[in-house]
Design a protein around this nucleic acid. Sequence first.
DNA 1: AAGCGCAATGATTGCGCTATCATCAGCATA
DNA 2: TATGCTGATGATAGCGCAATCATTGCGCTT
Lengths: 344, 344
Amino acid sequence: MKTTKKRSSDKKITLVDVADASGVSAITVSRVINQPEKVSESLRIQVQKAIDSLGYIPNQHASSLASSKSRVIGVAIPSLSNIVFTEVLRGIYEVMGAAGYKVLLVDTHYSPLEEEKMVRTLLSQSPEGLIITGGDQTKACQNFLQKARIPIVQIMELLADPIDMNVGFAHGRAGFDVVKHLLGQGYERIGFIGARMDPRVQQRMQGYKLALEQAGKFEKNYIVTTPEPSSIGVGGELFKSLMASTNGVVDAVFCVNDDLALGALFEAQRMNIRVPQDMAICGFNDIEAAEYVNPSLTSVSVGRYEMGVQASEMIIRVLNEKPIESKKVDMGYEIKKRASTSRL
Amino acid sequence: MKTTKKRSSDKKITLVDVADASGVSAITVSRVINQPEKVSESLRIQVQKAIDSLGYIPNQHASSLASSKSRVIGVAIPSLSNIVFTEVLRGIYEVMGAAGYKVLLVDTHYSPLEEEKMVRTLLSQSPEGLIITGGDQTKACQNFLQKARIPIVQIMELLADPIDMNVGFAHGRAGFDVVKHLLGQGYERIGFIGARMDPRVQQRMQGYKLALEQAGKFEKNYIVTTPEPSSIGVGGELFKSLMASTNGVVDAVFCVNDDLALGALFEAQRMNIRVPQDMAICGFNDIEAAEYVNPSLTSVSVGRYEMGVQASEMIIRVLNEKPIESKKVDMGYEIKKRASTSRL
DNA sequence: AAGCGCAATGATTGCGCTATCATCAGCATA
DNA sequence: TATGCTGATGATAGCGCAATCATTGCGCTT
């Protein structure tokens, strides 16, 4: 081993260094790393020893450039602080990690313009696949995505015209079903509380509206929304607003997610409104607290983790040129009927 | 989805394509993208037009390889599903995004071995900086990190001997202070509920133990823990165990995080144990629900978002060769005293 | 003994970009 | 006029790796 450089730890160690140290050619070292079965065992061990002792770490950029394979999957979600997305992410990381893919994650802050910028960022890493949220991309963004010629899954909602693949569930129908459930429990004046009002929330609201209209019980002023992000605090505030603006006639509230619903529930308790006797409260997403809070909270359960898994597996199948059953997967949902809406 | 399209759109568009299309040299196009102030306005516009019309997206791998600047920051956290880390992440994304860095995020599942593998993955992307959690790295991992010669921040806890920089707070002291608070409120037999038992949780437990020993009130069997991940459900179970194994003599519980505390609180309600009269419950992390639940939950508030911001800013300062005030930052904490521990 | 097939290894080339240095006009200075 | 200086642009040479094709050696067949 030559030590022309005294500070061997100063320079970055490359394939060639390992090759020199183990007396083979660079390409053989490359094979030891990427296709070990193509190298004889003795050489493999010899090279591996050199790799370990030098602490060699391959340069992924060089590898990607040479092979045009990045082993990167890009993921764009609207918000990092929303548990809904972090659970989807868990599913994605689980599957992608196991399959040897890195995940490059960006946060679009619910803005299509931001999303466009972020998608550019993702594409500049030459990802082999992309998972993005919803169908609200800008025209320019759609163009980029088309051109990329990589598998893309749009998640969270079902889209009429997906860019490539699509995994989600029907938010509108879920909202519709929630209202049917509340009506079935004998609640008559059903309010709606919404925050952030992204496309999926809007769909839930449309479902709510449709169901009430069909029942002849829709009242515009039973709807209270805010563009602010959801939180328990906001849920409490909106509940108070709803009560105030309707003089307390509302006897049920459909909250567009569980944070709002918990906020409404806790506020109702403070206002001495009995849930579910005098007031039904229904959430959405079925976070863990819904099951354990007192009274337990009715909510719409969605396979978030599974959605991440499903999207990832579809991409991997396509990358491995295996057939996929369908480009569009409806994950469904289930209304978990609990104490907070049970008057019967 | 390989449709038979015409050749032209088949090929990836490179710098040279843009150069040809706009009649300049490749390097000028590169300048328009990276140092636009070095190109005359007329040329700049001309080139930009070609970029837009071709839909050119730079290949970051080639760029990184040529410049040895990746604009990537690696981040390793133990769990994606823990709100504690996602809020830190938010801070990191906020600052790093604004500064033009991409974040490559990996999940170590609380395992140093996994972490070592993940750090290798991160390093193979030649990140310009690294944010990792805690100080529990394997020897090999520490070696890699030393060799990397990039700014590294270890976050969440304060370390005696950090690899490079360190941002966190004193978990042990926080645990100690919680117990002091409970004692001060007149609670005498203080239990402990812990899950997952990672190093930071252990430190909190040590603080708990120390405070009780000093007060002559430590009882080994007041401690109930599980290696399982924390959840509200587990919190309820552990609370039941604690009550059972101590015949209900315990009059306060320090839960190592708010999920466990909420679980304990909800379970106490179901068991008709009055909080705070007969039982104090204290959590940790001060998630939003703590403030709004009834009774409101005493918890230890920590600037998680701020910790992410701080760590990111330190890295950016170092990368810009600006001085940092200190390599070690104590973010502190605050015990939010609320109804669940207020007997006075 | 010649030829064949195959596994193991190596030499060369180029992925797309930027660092570096070179070039050249335009202009001010002496 | 000669000299230097500045700002704008270009030519060239790799960055570290893997695709591609070439080479070698060895066992086996005929």
